[in-house]
Amino acid sequence: MDVTTILKKYPKRRDSVIEILHEIQNHDPQNYLSEESLKKVATHINLPLAQIYGIVGYYSMLSLNPRKKFVIQVCKSPICGMLGSQSIYDAVKVKISARPDSANLFTIEKVECLGQCNQSPCMMINKEIYGNLTPQKIESIIEEIVISEQNAQK
């Protein structure tokens, strides 16, 4: 869905801004908010562009940088940290670099508590939660995504 179509769904009110920004980002092939999109948002809700930037810059789920199709967010908060989130993060990095053909698929980030500490260590890939992780599980989770992407290309 393009930005103009998304904007049409929302009232021209400031308090819709976070929902609007989420939806635009989710529909962007690069999972981010471009200047071009933000200008349209600013016009729609009648706020200066600088203020829209101020909002995007404040909220950690909103990104001004282009990202890959799959955004892997590994929780680094105290509980996941204690139960090995660093080794999960490392395993993700290793796995991705071992599959150079997949480098264009993934962006890795560290985030704060995802509210899933009953299954720490955990991570979120786009909207999907993965819990009770081990480096072995990372191997198969990433592999599965890569293969399904390759199949989709065929």
Partner: peptide, 11 residues
């Protein structure tokens, strides 16, 4: 908003 690390009851 449930952001306190270790908390997931509201979810």
């Amino acid at each position: 908003d449930e952001g306190e690390p270790g908390t997931f009851k509201d979810r």
